[in-house]
Nucleic acid binder design. Structure first.
Lengths: 204, 204, 204, 204
DNA sequence: CATGAATGAGTCTTCATTCAT
DNA sequence: CATGAATGAAGACTCATTCAT
């Protein structure tokens, strides 16, 4: 029993440390960029010995890749409950889009890392991240296709171009928001974005 | 006479070397990222001794900053002749937007550096680059405003959101195009983008 | 117990390496000058990897500054036991002066670095070194003042000029001794110096 | 004739440039130290193309060595007229000593280079400088010996130790004067130094 | 003599990563 | 699992010096 308890405690502690490291990494990567952040710094901020990072992550690359993965997971968990299964595809698109803005607003560090570091970086070609991004993008494409089939969006709308506009717009808006000091309400601007795009997508 | 010729030859040679370095840098920065590219590599690709880089650029930062500046210059020179002064603002917007896609298509290296490295990076906060980018973005904003005033675009269109969609869409489309091996016609996709956005912008 | 022993061993090893580096630096700085000595050379002589130097010293400057500091400490520890507290100020002056010569004789490397590199260099303006030097010089001044008050040294003796003569004489004598191959007995010459100066200082 | 005139003009110009370079070097060496000064900087201050330095000096070492030599020459020319041939050796010693202080006061740059850079540096072992310094020092020794023979200075005075005190005192005083911002009258302090030393040298 | 341009050899410094304990 | 210490490999940058003209 004792050893079982100890084990659990240890596992808990392990998870905590892992989180500490990931969170420190996210913060620092966002602030100074991935290449501008040394593992020594990550360790310092995470209050963990440098070499302990290697107990949780294979190497720096693995750590970098885990940052978006964990956040994508969290984003999904936030989005899922809000989606009314079988509901209007456009409404679902709207929810997904805006929830993402909300998530960025709540986790600007991650926004910074993802939109200014990971996504643009060649790492997006990195299978693990690419898969997550593709999966996310694919969802947009599918909902757009559904909306076309449902007759809400026009027949000749290119679902991929449409998705590019949604993701690109989000990326640009977020980048500007971050670079200029988060002076306005990101989610509100996100709504404007969605409306404008929606106007361009609908059947007349 | 002779010395004049010599001088010209020398100046020509200098310009050439500078171009070689700049071009090597653009290429490598796009391929491996700015931080992932060492000046040693730049020198090797440019077929110039490492220390010669310092004859033309103050330091690495200066080299990095010169990449977008030079290309912005070139982009302007390509765009300007195409613009019919006093013409329809929407048509001008279209030309500027598509010329940019054409330029990227012709200079994918630069597209890579700019859209995947410089623009998203904190460097966009770098005065010199920021100025160039702002100037470019402002042009979009102004034309959109003109189109609103002319009644072509709807009154309640947020010109900045609209610009974000145009630039973000371009960025995303380019990134995907680059990351997935330039398999399709970028300019054509750019046209689709413009049409879709235009549809969302117009007055009904 | 075991871990205690291990810790001590580790600490011992660390101290040793630090000493090795410091000693190599002292030697090389004296031989080739500070600027003429590369950290690569220091590492080689200390038989330590170059990057390990940075485990013990912040940077080259810190290493340079640690050379005089450590030796001043050692010099103090040699001098202190010899001073009879409350004794004759002139006798104390004599002891301090001659102990320094003895220390130089025993550690010519340090003499070289200190008198030919650090003291004359602008580094003497470096707060850390300046403080140590000032403290040392001040001692001379105070003892001279005491001797004046005691009536041993003449009323109109400028204590600072007197100190300059003592320190300058030591510096010059040491430099010559070093540059000309340590051919004579430094301490003996030091005694001559002291006597001559003393003659110039006393009340008649 | 014409060519002769041209030649002379050229020679004059050459001498000027040489002086410019030497003067710039003296200034910069004094300010930043010899190793801290690059030839590029010397060229910039001397307003001469970098490569022209090599038309006048074999290499940096040669330039460094020429700095004290030229100044020793100038110092001699200042001192010589003041010396009454065949006069009292002590008086001559005094004149030489004080003229040197005056020269330093008038040319603090040189003082800095010589006392803080060249003299203490290993360069003093450099034959050319060593010779000049030795010659200068020898003069002191000879005058001191004369004073001993004349019965002014005591029989058992070690002329070399006496000289060390004079030169060392001058060096130390100058260094302090320079490092602490030349706050007091150097020549006046020099007089105090001489008097004190003289007191220690004389026969009783 | 004059000089702009070029360059090779080095310097300090950083950092991801390993390993013994 | 934990961790302090160690290190190899590399990077940005400098500078004395050369050379073609």
């Amino acid at each position: 029993m004792a050893s079982g308890t100890t084990l659990k405690l240890k596992q808990q502690r392990s998870r905590d440390r892992r989180e500490q490291i990931l969170s420190a990494a996210t913060k620092l990567f966002g602030q100074r960029g991935i290449d501008g952040t040394s593992l020594t710094e990550v360790a310092a901020v995470a209050k963990v010995p440098l070499s302990s990072i290697y107990d949780y992550f294979e190497d720096k690359r693995a750590l970098v890749l885990d940052v978006p993965e964990g956040n994508f997971e969290a984003l999904y968990q936030k989005t899922e409950p809000l989606l009314v299964k079988g509901g209007d595809p456009v409404e679902q698109l709207r929810i997904i889009f805006l929830t993402n803005f909300q998530y960025i607003k709540d986790n600007p560090s991650w926004g910074r890392v993802f939109f200014l570091e990971i996504w643009p970086s060649v790492l997006a070609a990195e299978p693990r991240v690419k898969k997550a991004v593709d999966k996310y993008a694919l969802r947009y494409v599918q909902l757009i296709k559904q909306a076309i089939r449902a007759g809400t969006y026009r027949r000749n709308l290119d679902p991929y171009a449409a998705m590019s506009l949604m993701m690109g717009g989000m990326c640009h808006l977020t980048a500007v928001w971050l670079l200029y000091g988060r002076k306005y309400d990101l989610v509100k601007k996100g709504k404007t974005l969605f409306t404008t795009l929606h106007n361009g997508f609908v059947q007349r």
